[in-house]
């Protein structure tokens, strides 16, 4: 091999860059933080798989219908009626933003702007 020094440095840089996930986790492999689910309630508004994937779209829909069309109630697939409210409906069961919302969001670098206007249940408690 010619220019061995430079080539080896090059290979190392290549490995550092493309194996970045490996290096960043190196020595601190832990279980991913798990969002805490409500203890009493077993069923969410829609089914769990759907909620897991689409909750942001779902909430966005709520926001739009409520703010723009002035509607207040949502009827789910089973015909159950819910009041469209993040704070009063969702957070009633999911009563801890930090332990529920943030665990995933932080971990997946999701920066939703819900909490720019809404108050998290923890905050609400502080004020009560």
């Amino acid at each position: 091999m010619y220019n061995a020094n430079k080539v080896i440095i090059g290979i190392i840089v290549f490995l550092i860059f493309f194996a970045m996930p490996f290096w960043l986790n190196f020595g601190k492999v832990e279980a991913l933080p798990k969002p805490e689910l409500p203890k009493e309630e077993k069923k969410c508004i829609e089914d769990t798989d759907y909620m897991k994937a689409y909750h942001m779209k779902f909430l966005d829909e709520w926001r739009k219908t409520k703010v723009r069309e002035g509607k207040v109630y949502y009827i789910n697939k089973e015909g159950k009626i819910y009041k469209m409210s993040l704070q009063r409906t969702c957070m009633k069961c999911h009563d801890n933003k930090e332990k529920f919302c943030d665990r995933c969001h932080k971990n997946l670098v999701v920066q939703p702007d819900c909490w720019k206007c809404h108050l998290a249940p923890e905050e609400v408690k502080k004020w009560q």
């Binding site: 970045m20 996930p21 960043l24 986790n25 601190k28 991913l32 971990n107 997946l108 670098v109």
Partner: peptide, 12 residues
Amino acid sequence: LRFFVNEVPSFV
């Protein structure tokens, strides 16, 4: 990288 690292570094 957010899918591969537990605590995603701030630059990401």
